[in-house]
Nucleic acid binder design. Structure first.
Lengths: 202, 202
DNA sequence: AATTATGTAGACCAGTCGGTCTAGAGTCCT
DNA sequence: AGGACTCTAGACCGACTGGTCTACATAATT
């Protein structure tokens, strides 16, 4: 490739930044660390991200969120029902966590918590990422017969519980929780879905 | 009081630090900010916490965790069953979150995620805090008839789901999730406990 | 060939970081 | 009274922070 050398650098910076932000958070990660880890000079960073650290974090978080979101969506889509779906969700997260030596948890949570107080592009990117994940889950649940508002409740439940279990697994350095929680929540969702699709409330 | 003026300063620093770490994380919170917010000079900080920022964060996180833990334990103990207990748990967190303008989420999670990669006193304090909360939950569940390992599973489920919902609520700036998740998980736990105490599996 | 856009490269800046150090105020013991 | 101990007070340090700026290489356009 002759042209587009620049975009490669841009993406390399983005991926490096995403990894570091995910592992250390926004405040604890310095621009110089990102630069030396990605091999890019400072000039390139500010050429590609004139908005500085904030823009970089917002884009990096969004990118990492999209990546993981796709992997989760694929795992869920391949499942034959809610129970298998939630279990698969837990597996994706557990595998990534264990494979990274318990360093790679949720690519959004660390930054999201730090930024929860402030308003700004980073917070927006975090909120949008979660919303995207939830939208995917809701669609799946609806395809399995869940009505609109039930799907929303159950998607929230699935994401919340798996997200919390991921946090606990990371702190404990043991992925066990992720599997047991996913199993329980999957069973609960399947049971509730069965009720709704056969007999059904309002 | 004539003496013990020193311990007051120590605690004031600790509480200020806990609040800032909780809202901004470890890396993003500077010693100078803690100092100016608490009104203490730097000399006092290093007299009371010779281990520096790390020791301060470990103690502050432990203290804040103990405080919230006590409030959660009281709410759970006042409940007449698992369902009411988990709902009360969600209420405690939702109230604190909303009352602080969505700034005060979990006093442990923000720091825990930043430090998940490293080993050290901070990580230890976070792990110990969660473990303490879980121990309390397990005892309650056992008092309602749950066998040892079921209690452990259900305590993990309750904490994980509520913790995840808290994160989601904070990002969304809406405590709704906390209530719906707590309701669903409480119902699930109550149902499973009823099964175990009457008929029972292995 | 000259010009313009795209990007790389890193020196440089003021400000802040966590941490150390010395000076001294206040209190207690002897 | 005098010394010891506890704790406050903040000046000071080197290292590092995010951010700006100029110089330059390369490649497409004219």
């Amino acid at each position: 490739m002759t042209r587009s050398g620049g975009q490669e650098t841009r993406v390399r910076i983005l991926r490096t930044a995403a990894e570091l932000f995910r592992r250390q958070g926004y405040g604890a990660t310095g621009l110089n660390q990102i630069l030396s880890a990605s091999g890019a000079p400072k000039g390139s960073l500010y050429f590609h991200f004139p908005g500085g650290k904030e823009q970089l974090a917002a884009e990096a978080t969004a990118l990492a969120g999209r990546d993981l979101g796709e992997r989760m969506a694929a795992a869920v889509a391949a499942a034959d029902g809610p129970r298998a779906a939630v279990t698969a969700l837990g597996d994706v997260l557990a595998d990534g966590l264990a494979a990274s030596g318990y360093r790679d948890g949720c690519p959004v949570a660390t930054v999201a918590l730090e930024q929860a107080g402030e308003a700004g592009p980073i917070q927006d990117a975090c909120a949008a990422t979660y919303e995207g994940w939830l939208a995917g889950l809701r669609e799946q649940l609806k395809s399995w017969g869940a009505p609109e508002d039930t799907a929303a409740e159950l998607a929230d439940l699935a994401l919340s519980s798996v997200q919390g279990a991921l946090l606990l697994a990371q702190v404990r350095r043991d992925v066990g929780v992720l599997h047991t929680i996913a199993g329980q929540v999957g069973a609960h969702i399947e049971a509730r879905l069965a009720t709704v699709t056969t007999g059904g409330a309002a």
